[in-house]
Amino acid sequence: MKISVDETKCCGAGQCVMLAPEVFDQRDEDGIVVLLDAAPAPEHHQAARESAEVCPAAAIHIGEEA
């Protein structure tokens, strides 16, 4: 799994952080997504996929190849 985020689309809702705190965080100053782990371990894949799908700004992209 290879994750990328689009900071210019992110709206700072923080849904990803609630679902996958090992993978995503938010910047303190403006709430924009911080990608903690672009190639997370398999146990975080399901939460990362769900984060991408529920992101209200479609700002998270999941590629399958690390």
Binding site: A13, Q15, M18, D30, G31
Partner: peptide, 24 residues
């Protein structure tokens, strides 16, 4: 409510029972 504090507002929202935005 957060005014230019999205992350901090989310953290404070834990005061509210339930799952913000729906969650899993």
């Amino acid at each position: 409510l957060g005014w230019n504090m999205p992350k901090q507002a989310r953290i404070h929202s834990r005061l509210l029972t339930g799952t913000p935005g729906g969650g899993r």
